[in-house]
């Protein structure tokens, strides 16, 4: 599709912005990752520290996919 700027303001829904901010918090906040330092307790079959990174990755991935699906459905993706 093309977009000449005539349509749609740049506003993302508040929940999308909120989720994106949470993405940054879970990935970057030092106290969270400090808590997993050397933690090998098995969570979902993986050491806790590995599960932490995988969970952060899944959380960020889900935020982008959900944002796109929601905006595409409401016609705000363009």
């Amino acid at each position: 599709m093309s977009d000449d700027g005539k349509t749609n303001p740049n506003n993302h829904a508040a929940w999308i912005i909120g989720w994106f901010i949470l993405d940054a918090v879970v990935a970057l906040a030092p106290p969270i990752y400090w808590a997993f330092d050397r933690n090998r307790t098995a969570i979902l079959g993986l050491p806790a520290v590995v599960t932490y990174f995988v969970a952060v990755a899944v959380f960020i991935t889900a935020s982008i996919v959900a944002a796109y699906l929601a905006e595409a459905r409401s016609g705000k993706a363009g």
């Binding site: 977009d3 000449d4 700027g5 749609n8 994106f20 990935a27 990174f53 960020i60 991935t61 982008i64």
Partner: peptide
């Protein structure tokens, strides 16, 4: 992996202003 995924969040946020100015 963390930064490679976070960078896509930035891509999502920048998409509209950058593309519209670019076009």
């Amino acid at each position: 992996l963390s930064y490679s995924l976070l960078t896509v969040v930035l891509m999502y946020l920048m998409a509209k202003p950058v593309w519209i100015w670019g076009k």
